[in-house]
Amino acid sequence: MTTTSVAVPSSAGKKFNLNFKDFGIVFGLAAIMLFLTLNTGTFLTGRNFINLFDQAAVVGLLAAAATLCIISGVFDLSSTATLAVSAISGVMITQHFGVAAGFFGALLVGALLGSITGLIVVSTKVNSFIGTLAVSIIYRGLAIVITGGSIVAPLPDQLASFQTWTWPSLLGLTAGSVLMLAMTVVLGIVLWRTTFGRRIYAVGGNQEAARLSGIRTGSIHVAVFAISGLCSAMAGMILASRAGSAQPAMAIGIELTAIAAVVIGGTSILGGQGAMWRAFVGVMILTVISNGFNLLHWDTTYQQVVTGVLILVAVAADGLFFRKSTR
């Protein structure tokens, strides 16, 4: 028994045991980045990184929220429908009350819709997958009703300030990227260090044990959906800000990309396991791959194939390592 991995009791009391299973995915990301650095002259440039983070902002926000949902044992397929309704509401409020009110309104609408989704799923006890699918159809319908099916945009003199989220800020990153990074860190800490985070893991890991431990499992789920709604609204703001407009069909399908990113990062879809940094790594992998296809001038149609294969590999690797560790 030679001690190659030194046990370091941290203040958290966890033993940090670096092993491949936990961090394999980070090496994966590093390998792709190394490959692109060696094969393109443009990958490892500040400009490209600013671009990378900006591309990751929307999926990153959705994936952060999806991480909370999945760990607590639910899926939120309504996230991008919520995104559309909140972005549209934000634009409409902007038209009447100005940009700041618009953004604030969008967040409020997002959180509200998320809570409603949560209440529906919790009170009807339907499987969240089906429940949120139904809710997403309702919200998309709602988006068409309030816009009459057309694109909405802020008034011409509001456009410049409405596009705040595309402006460079900290370290030259766009404001949208910074928002995504900030939310990832905040939600990561929530998950890691707060009693709420502990309860999320417990509810997703064993709902009955959580209930008998005095946790209001329904409230936890509603809260998680509300946070998901809030993140969707943020993502909606960024998209609308980028496009200068919002429309009912915006961001369709991205909720699945977000879930894929979470899974690629190594969070178990069975619930009760996972971490926020994993979602971030998953998002970066998807973004870097798409970036790589562009830089290398590869046919982007293959990008989907690669992404699909990657998801399979990630899930299979999880199963394989899991089996190995118990055999």
């Binding site: 707060t194 502990r198 893991y201 890991g205 044990a209 431990s213």
Partner: peptide, 23 residues
């Protein structure tokens, strides 16, 4: 089925029902 959250560490399980007391 009713007692433990198998996916979590020993310590977290022991602490789960009395979280507010140490927060």
């Amino acid at each position: 089925e009713q007692g433990l959250v198998m996916s979590r560490p020993v310590g977290e399980n022991i602490a789960l029902s009395t979280l507010p007391a140490r927060s």
